[in-house]
Design a protein around this nucleic acid. Structure first.
Lengths: 202, 202
DNA sequence: GACTAAAAGTTAGCAGTGCTTACTCTTGAA
DNA sequence: TTCAAGAGTAAGCACTGCTAACTTTTAGTC
């Protein structure tokens, strides 16, 4: 199982693995100041290298940000997978767990979450980006399939999955952008999610 | 009925109403290049003034952008009001018309739409911004109230309204950010909206 | 009309940005 | 030991947001 590229072979260069270090630094900066509130110079400064150093590892600013977004998608996918698989309750429990997980991720990492969805222009045409996004949606479809009657067409699965996604995506953004004053507690949010799941899946 | 401020008294200055001219120029730029893809210098250049001129009318970049966003909210509110009031069909028609209108606005002015919702940090604490946003949501609540049984509590109205908002908001963003491959035609979108309205309002 | 204060524009400049170029140092392998 | 490639540097370009100091235009008064 070989790793992607440019990892382990040499354990330490001049500054260790600057590439990975920068991605993590940018991730933190994105949370602190937002995607267009930080500068590569700043990230370089924090990493203790010159402002030109990042360009030895990334083609341009967009590429670093993209890497942070991609990692975010994967992180969310894993969390969603976990949430669905360890959900307890009735047959709709995994569905509402997925929703809660989605909202939770948005709340925990709003900067990266915004990055993952559209804020960065050009990402919509990035095939790798879309691929990882679809892997995420596959988890949703898998759970929808379990709930729907046997033999339900793939179109219908997709349609229900998309409805769920619309819902929870809107909720997540409205929440992190402070666009409503509902102020749901955890229990209320869980109830809302279950209510939604019921309405969509019935 | 006096007008807000700095309007009509003098009809023409050096360049006419540069303030309004700049807001419109920025609106166009936001659509062309995205909210963080344009510069004030560029707007000034297009308006034919020096790069320092805008700062005679706006405190800083944020303030211009805010003005564009505010105008966008008002524009959407008007469109929603129209859409709801001229909707034809059964009792749910105004609800699904509102959803279609929301999605249509997002598609027509994605740049401004993104501006209106969170992309610009600090807007969530802007009281005027929130006020205009609530005026928008009032239209939704008004239509929800018409559909719900007489005597329904305000909490329930708000809850249903919020569910609708979640839905359509998620749909709008997923669409303009190209995060799904569903490719709905107008008729299919209308059906989807109606389906949603039914599921939420029942 | 001449005078004047303020409004609305100008140029020049600062610090900071993304990114490139040309250089130096470090490293692993021949 | 040599040496090309990898990983860093400093210097610099064009651009940005914004400020300071200035000039011009305007509206209102005598």
């Amino acid at each position: 199982m070989e790793q992607g590229a440019k990892t382990s072979p040499r354990a330490q260069y001049h500054h260790g693995d600057l590439r990975a270090h920068l991605i993590e630094t940018v991730r933190v900066l994105v949370e602190e100041k937002g995607a267009d509130g930080f500068s590569i110079s700043e990230a370089a400064r924090r990493a203790g290298v010159s402002s030109a150093a990042p360009y030895k590892h990334f083609h341009d600013r967009k590429e670093i940000v993209r890497e942070v977004a991609l990692a975010g998608i994967d992180r969310m996918r894993d969390q969603m997978d976990d949430a669905a698989q360890s959900a307890q309750g009735d047959r709709l429990a995994p569905i509402s767990a997925l929703g809660l997980c989605y909202a939770h991720f948005a709340r925990t990492e709003p900067g990266v979450f915004r990055l993952m969805f559209g804020l960065t222009k050009g990402h919509d045409e990035d095939p790798e980006m879309q691929e990882h996004g679809e892997a995420c949606f596959d988890v949703v479809k898998r759970e929808v399939r379990k709930v729907m009657p046997e033999g339900t067409g793939e179109d219908e699965i997709e349609r229900r999955g998309y409805m769920l996604h619309m819902f929870v995506h809107g909720h997540a953004f409205l929440e992190i952008d402070g666009k409503h004053d509902l102020e749901l507690g955890p229990a209320e949010e869980a109830m809302l999610m279950y209510d939604i799941a019921r309405r969509i899946m019935s």
